[in-house]
Design a protein around this nucleic acid. Structure first.
Lengths: 314, 314
DNA sequence: AACATTAGTGCTAAAATGGCACCAATGAAG
DNA sequence: CTTCATTGGTGCCATTTTAGCACTAATGTT
């Protein structure tokens, strides 16, 4: 191991906050990091960290080294990706993070096909409903609903993702079909909520063309589509949820759209996010494969609600 | 060893022209380079060099990697030097190249003192009368007469270095003391000549203030000051040589200045040359020590010719 | 055609790495 | 203030990697 690798190890410690965290993230023993950073300090002839068993701080020299280490990581990353441009076909590890639903419903079939086409590609898929630091955790690609707030990341829109308001026939028998959004807002709702995505109101456009927001009476929240669907199917709540969560429930008549003539505002699209513009071949090809699978014009999940193009258009 | 080191090894091969040269320069076995570059190609998944047993050429990918390797070397070099700024006192290896004469007469005593002051500094001194590539061969500092032509290097003037025209009393008895430069040009001369420095004419300023050049009759040339001095002392030639080569020959009366009222043009100064502006502590301190030893105003070698300030001033 | 020198590789000894177990220190919780 | 869980550091050892030597085949020069 040489100076560059040790500097990157130092960077891991600083960015992840502890030797223990860095070791865990990189799947190596804590003693390795301890020894290698000591060795780095010996080789450079300067102390980089002041440390106790519970915390550390950077020395002045350490702070400078960390800046240089970031530049080295960037440059080395560029170099490796540059080499990857010359690959005949994609190879290596593709590390993807995604919300559970996106992964299960949309990514896994694409991954299966992709790995048939390119047997030399390995895939690591992390299901995580939190917004993760894809740079620090070394992801090539992330799939999310909603544009990322981190402007240093590159976000590319995969597909639009409109909301649907659905209830079971039993629910309608019990509460009646609401005729206005005000009536809807009085009924019990089950809504999607995760750390990164939360639905607790409905944005719509009224008859005069004004954008409006109506808070709904969310009595049940979960980050799992199946759980939400089961709640709706139980007839005890209607659901408002992004259409990408749906399967065949509407086609089978188990769920029925409410207020179909309401003019809903656009909802957050689905995005692919990656850390920098020059993608390895395998990342770019996978991205294209996901786009192809989902469909560029109207996403495949809109096929799960008949005549969805006409719904919620005012 | 990891990617950065292997890339730098690739760069060595490319810049030094062969695996064998690179191995020799870095003092490692050729097989190490062969294996590590093969490993680099495997890791990056791309061929970098097309090679036979006698030559190689870069692939397109290889050419790109070489560019990146240069950036990595620069950045890594900056990083190491940055760390060295935080050293309490100088340490590590100081690698110096110099012409033989400069090394023997002026550098070695400075090195001796310097290493007494700073025991943790090691010095590698390469005597070479050729102009070497100090970047490729990893030198920290070079001492030369004449400003370097490579504009990417930093050159700092150590001291002026004027010529002297000297002959032995026996020579003067045999040929008479010349009264004009034309007369001088007819006499046999011994002159300094190395790959990097060659004296075969005299530049002077005539009575009207014009810069003139007179070729002299050089019948003996060498790159060793002692050899030249021995030739002059033998009475069979006069010598024209940079004053820094002299020791006590004039003071002892063994050599006498010729044409003392000639107005000689300036000759090439002595320079220290280093590859980049931000010097490690040990390099900067050594540079200062050399300057101090030689003297900033009039260099110590001018003490070897009495009243040298008045000589050759017209 | 002969030769000197090159790059590549098998084999092996040496060096480095990584992990485990243990220890001492530390900050949080009670 | 005591206890405890977790941290960073280190000794030891098995494993992996590195570096060098000897040998081979290829190449460009003479």
């Amino acid at each position: 191991m040489d100076t560059t690798s040790r500097l990157l190890m130092l960077l891991d410690v600083v960015e992840l906050g502890s030797f223990a965290n860095a070791a865990q993230t990189k799947n190596i023993d804590r003693s390795v990091i301890s020894k290698q950073i000591s060795r780095l300090e010996d080789d450079l002839g300067v102390r980089l960290l002041n440390r106790t068993t519970r915390s550390f701080s950077l020395t002045a020299a350490g702070a400078e080294m960390v800046k240089k280490a970031r530049e080295l990581r960037d440059l080395l990353g560029q170099t490796v990706r540059l080499a990857e441009n010359y690959h005949q076909e994609p190879r290596g590890v593709l590390k993807i993070t995604s919300s559970s639903i996106i992964a299960k419903l949309y990514l896994q079939p694409v991954i299966n096909d992709f790995q048939k086409r390119f047997p030399q590609v390995e895939v690591e898929l992390r299901l995580d409903d939190r917004v993760v630091d894809i740079v620090a955790e070394g992801f090539d690609l992330a799939f999310r609903v909603g544009e990322p707030k981190d402007s240093t990341l590159i976000a590319r829109k995969i597909a639009r993702n409109r909301l649907a308001i659905l209830a079971s026939p039993e629910f309608i028998n019990t509460y009646g079909a609401p005729k206005t959004i005000d009536e809807l807002a009085l009924l019990p709702a089950a809504t999607y909520a995760s750390n990164s995505l939360r639905v607790n109101s409905i944005n719509y456009i009224d008859k005069d063309g004004n954008h409006k927001e109506k808070t709904i009476k969310s009595v049940f929240r979960a980050n799992d589509g199946e759980v939400l669907l089961l709640k709706a199917l139980s007839g005890t709540a209607f659901i408002v949820l992004p259409s990408f969560i749906l399967a065949k429930e509407v086609i089978d008549g188990q769920l029925v759209p409410l207020l179909p003539s309401l003019h809903l505002s656009d909802f957050s699209a689905m995005y692919a996010v990656y850390p920098h513009r020059d993608l390895p071949v395998r990342t770019r090809l996978f991205f294209d494969a996901v786009r192809e699978h989902i469909g560029k014009d109207s996403p495949i999940w809109e096929n799960n609600i008949p005549n969805f193009e006409q719904l919620y258009q005012g």
